[in-house]
Simulated assay, not measured.
Amino acid sequence: MAALVSFKPHMLMVLSQIGYTLMYIITEASFNHGMDPSVYVTYRHIVATLVLLPFAYFMERKTRPKLTKAIFVEIFVLSLLGVSLTLNMYFTSLKYTSPTLVACMVNTIASLTFILATILRLEVVNIRSPRGIAKILGTVVSLAGVMTMTLYKGALLRKIGDALIHINGRTSVVQENWLKGSILVVASCITWSIWYIMQAYTLKRYPAQLSLTTWMNAVGAAQSAVYTAVVQSAWTIGFDIDLWSTLYGGIVISGMVTYVQLWCMEAKGPVFVTLFNPLSTLLVALLSYFVLGENLYIGSIIGGGVVVIGLYLLLWGKQHDEPQKKEPEDSKAPIFSPDENNFKGEA
C-alpha cells in the first residue's frame, strides 16, 4: 500500500498524458467534422469556467487576495497569452497538420521557457559544470528537432493495413498545409513560454491558483468570443462530436488535468511533470498511425526523436536545481515561481 501511495504522482501523470492524447484525437475529429477552432476554444473555456468557478469560490474564499485593477490587467494579458491567442493558433495548426506534429512541438516549450528564463536571469547556467552544458546543449538540440519537423517533411511511411477508426470529413489535400500549420504551432509554443514566465510573477501577487485559473478561462473565453465574432464563424454546434470534444476539453483537460498537474507539481516539482511530456507524443503518433490511419512522415519521426533527446538533456541539467533553491518557507510559496519554471503547456 505504501508503494502505491509513493507512485500516486506517477500514475496521475500517466493518466494526464492519456487525457491529452485523447484530446488530440477528439479535437481533430471535431475539426474534420467542420467545427471552427476559435468556436471550440471559446466554448471549451466557458465550460471550464463553469466547472472551476464553484471550487475556486468556496475553496479559496478565505485566502484569495483582493482583485485590483493592476492584477486584472495582468490576468487579461495572461488570458491572451495562455488561452485566446495561443490556443487559437495551436488548434488551427492541428487543423492544418497532424496530431503527431502538434504533440511533438509541445515538447519544445521547456527549451523556449529555459531561453526566456535565462535572458531574464531567472535561470542560472554554469557553463563550467556538466549540467550547465547539458542545459545549453539540450536547448539547441531540441530547437534543431523543431526546425527538422517544420522544414523537412520527408518520405511518407507506408500504411500497415486499414484504419481501425475512420474520421469522416478528412480531406488531406485541402486541409493539410504543413508549413502554415508548423509556423502557427511554433508561434503558439513561444507565446505559451512567455505565459509561463509571466504567470510566475502574477502568482506572487495573486497566490490563488484555482481563482487565477478560473479568471483566465473566463477572460480568455471572452477574448476568443470577440475574435470568433470578427471572423464570422458559425457558432452552432450539434449533439455530436463537436459537443463531446468541447465538454471533454473543458471538463477533463482545462479542469481535471490542470488540477492534477498542479497537485503533482506541488508534490514533486515542475521537472517531474515535464518528464512525462513525451509520453503523449508517443501515444498520439501510435494512435494516429495505427488506429486512425493518419499519414506519418520521416521528418516527423526524426525531428520528434531529436526533440525528445534535447528535452531529456535539458531536464537532466535541471535535475538538481530544485534542492539548491529550496528555502525554509517553500511551503508558503506559490506552486509556480520564477525559480521553478513550469514547462508544460495546457492544450
Results as ranks from 00 to 15, higher is better:
residue 337 S to T: 13
residue 122 L to R: 15
residue 259 Y to E: 13
residue 216 M to G: 09
residue 29 A to H: 01
residue 273 V to Q: 10
residue 120 L to W: 13
residue 341 N to M: 15
residue 76 F to S: 12
residue 245 S to Y: 05
residue 308 V to I: 15
residue 147 M to S: 13
residue 11 M to K: 10
residue 151 L to G: 09
residue 195 W to R: 05
residue 41 V to D: 01
residue 253 I to G: 06
residue 28 E to V: 09
residue 230 V to A: 02
residue 116 L to Q: 03
residue 340 E to M: 12
residue 115 I to H: 07
residue 4 L to Y: 07
residue 268 K to L: 04
residue 83 V to E: 13
residue 298 I to G: 04
residue 58 F to H: 14
residue 166 H to C: 06
residue 323 P to F: 09
residue 67 L to Y: 10
residue 119 I to G: 03
residue 285 A to L: 15
residue 54 P to F: 14
residue 279 L to K: 10
residue 12 L to R: 02
residue 42 T to K: 03
residue 65 P to K: 07
residue 216 M to I: 12
residue 288 S to L: 13
residue 13 M to C: 05
residue 224 S to G: 04
residue 189 C to G: 03
residue 265 M to C: 14
residue 184 L to N: 05
residue 28 E to F: 10
residue 249 G to L: 07
residue 332 K to V: 09
residue 63 T to I: 09
residue 305 G to H: 08
residue 240 D to R: 08
residue 319 Q to C: 07
residue 209 Q to M: 14
residue 260 V to S: 11
residue 22 L to H: 00
residue 213 T to P: 08
residue 183 I to Y: 09
residue 231 V to P: 01
residue 179 L to Y: 07
residue 297 Y to A: 06
residue 339 D to G: 15
residue 73 V to W: 13
residue 94 L to Q: 07
residue 299 G to H: 01
residue 223 Q to K: 02
residue 211 S to K: 12
residue 266 E to M: 12
residue 220 G to Q: 06
residue 125 V to L: 08
residue 4 L to H: 07
residue 123 E to L: 11
residue 240 D to S: 11
residue 50 L to N: 10
residue 108 T to V: 14
residue 64 R to G: 05
residue 22 L to R: 01
residue 267 A to Q: 15
residue 308 V to W: 09
residue 200 A to I: 04
residue 277 N to E: 13
residue 41 V to T: 05
residue 279 L to P: 06
residue 112 L to R: 07
residue 122 L to D: 14
residue 257 V to A: 06
residue 283 L to Q: 14
residue 39 V to E: 00
residue 5 V to I: 14
residue 181 G to D: 00
residue 130 P to G: 08
residue 222 A to Y: 06
residue 326 K to V: 10
residue 32 N to S: 13
residue 213 T to L: 15
residue 112 L to M: 14
residue 164 L to T: 06
residue 103 A to G: 04
residue 37 P to N: 01
residue 258 T to E: 09
residue 227 Y to M: 08
residue 99 P to Y: 11
residue 49 T to P: 01
residue 267 A to E: 15
residue 123 E to Y: 09
residue 200 A to P: 01
residue 1 M to L: 13
residue 293 G to A: 13
residue 101 L to R: 03
residue 119 I to D: 10
residue 161 G to I: 06
residue 210 L to K: 15
residue 13 M to S: 02
residue 131 R to L: 04
residue 139 T to C: 10
residue 67 L to E: 10
residue 67 L to V: 09
residue 200 A to D: 08
residue 310 G to D: 08
residue 83 V to D: 12
residue 336 F to P: 06
residue 174 V to N: 03
residue 26 I to M: 14
residue 206 Y to D: 00
residue 312 Y to H: 11
residue 19 G to P: 05
residue 4 L to P: 03
residue 59 M to P: 00
